[in-house]
């Protein structure tokens, strides 16, 4: 069994589908933070078979984790303070996603102007529908985007 030391303050993101840890690492901007991050890939899980885990030691107000709600509802967010789990944070779908997913509509302005940010807005919270801010086309998960 692999052991990673506990953290004093920060987050433990558990039940990440195996293989998605680096994707989340990127979209939370953890590469830009000067703080300890442990990435555990393919950890054994009774429920999932395999899972990824991220441990981030940082100020708990310094990270916006809403993007996780878009990536996967089932990710567990444990907020750690003084070395203990203080809460399991409930995530809300972000109103806007910037450069998280890509618009694949060949008629969209983003298809020819590659420097533009790919911005999606939450069009329907209940049905979890995001639409491109430019062309209004609905994002479908099998559009691939950056899920490779």
């Amino acid at each position: 069994m692999l052991n990673v030391g506990k953290i004093e303050e920060g987050f433990v993101l558990d039940h990440i589908p195996a293989g998605k840890a680096m994707y989340i690492y990127h979209h939370l901007g953890l590469d830009k933070l000067d703080c300890p991050v442990a990435i555990i890939k393919n950890a054994r899980s009774n429920a999932m078979g395999k899972k990824d885990i991220l441990k981030v030691e940082c100020d708990i107000d310094s990270l916006n984790l809403d993007v996780l709600a878009f990536i996967d509802h089932n990710i567990t967010v444990n907020v750690i303070k003084d070395g203990e789990i203080k809460e399991k944070r409930k995530l809300e779908l972000p109103r806007e996603l910037v450069d998280v997913i890509k618009c694949t509509n060949p008629r969209c302005i983003t298809s020819i102007e590659h420097e533009l940010p790919h911005i999606f807005y939450l069009a329907d919270e209940e049905r979890e529908i995001y639409r491109c801010k430019y062309c209004d086309v609905k994002y479908e998960e099998n559009d691939a985007g950056e899920w490779n």
Binding site: N105, R107, C108, I109, T110, S111, I112, E113, L116, C132, K133, Y134, C135, D136, V137
Partner: peptide, 10 residues
């Protein structure tokens, strides 16, 4: 006027 969707928003 632009042939691409969303050009005016840009």
């Amino acid at each position: 006027r632009h042939p691409k969707e969303g050009a005016a928003a840009v």
